[in-house]
């Protein structure tokens, strides 16, 4: 793999209360790449993301972002280091307009000019958001809300974008559109850690993939390798 890793999980164990959910997970997001984390329901994908964002502190192991240990930092400090997060199920702020949803993140950006540039960038990635910028986000369609959730994570121009199930509950056309935009975002220099159940879409756009089961990483490799590994493809990815 690439020698310059942006985010590195080194045998991280984590969970809720005393219950361990993920055990000794090691994964690596190289700078400028799309990495995907696959697996069925309830295998610890979201818990892994929550550990990275700082919502839960890891029990053991090290979390490195740009070589700096971030385990134990508060979520807002981790966000401040340049980690954008688009949560599962979108969780947009329904009674704010699309534009205000994007502004929420602007707290962190000191310069108005940079913010305006970033906003313009988000609008070129998702032209629909520009058209609907003054619409209450509750009244937007599912796909638009997902675009808004991703856009909100991008306004601060993070180095790493964490995406939790961006394809959840969306029509195939919209999923395709979002996948294309993800590639575009990646080409602009943002590394992406994608957590997905839609393995087909994820493997099409990713450079590298990890497969989780029962709280552990059971297989990893480039996407072609994983697709060729018959047993993995059959059992965990649902692709024939």
């Amino acid at each position: 793999m690439s020698n310059e890793s942006l985010l590195q999980l080194d045998t991280v164990s984590s969970g809720y209360g005393k219950k361990t959910i993920i055990r000794e997970v090691s994964l690596d997001v190289p700078a400028g790449k799309i990495v995907t984390l696959l697996g069925a329901n309830g295998v610890g994908k979201t818990t892994t993301l929550r550990t990275i964002t700082g919502q839960i502190a890891p029990f053991a192991g090290r979390l490195l972002f740009q070589g700096r240990d971030i385990s134990g930092l508060k979520p807002h400090s981790i966000a401040g280091l340049g980690v954008g997060y688009s949560p599962e199920g979108r969780r947009i702020f329904g009674n704010l307009t699309a534009y205000e949803n994007l502004l929420v993140v602007a707290n962190r950006i000191k310069s108005k000019k940079i913010f305006r540039e970033n906003l313009q960038w988000v609008y070129t990635l998702f032209p629909r958001l520009g058209e609907r910028s003054h619409q209450l986000s509750d009244t937007m369609s599912g796909g638009e809300q997902q675009m808004l959730a991703i856009g909100r994570a991008l306004v601060s121009k993070p180095m790493l974008l964490l995406l939790d199930e961006p394809s959840l509950g969306l029509a195939p056309m919209v999923v395709k559109q979002i996948a294309e935009t993800l590639v575009e975002i990646n080409q602009a220099g943002v590394s992406i850690l994608l957590v997905e159940q839609n393995a087909k879409m994820a493997l099409q756009i990713s450079h590298y993939a990890y497969v989780m089961d029962n709280g552990q990483v059971i297989q990893h490799g480039s996407c072609e390798e994983l697709l060729q590994d018959k047993s993995i493809a059959d059992i965990y990815l649902g692709i024939r």
Partner: peptide, 11 residues
């Protein structure tokens, strides 16, 4: 509205 998410967004 969403305390956890607000924190993730850097608040």
């Amino acid at each position: 509205q969403d305390q956890d998410l607000a924190e993730h967004l850097g608040i």
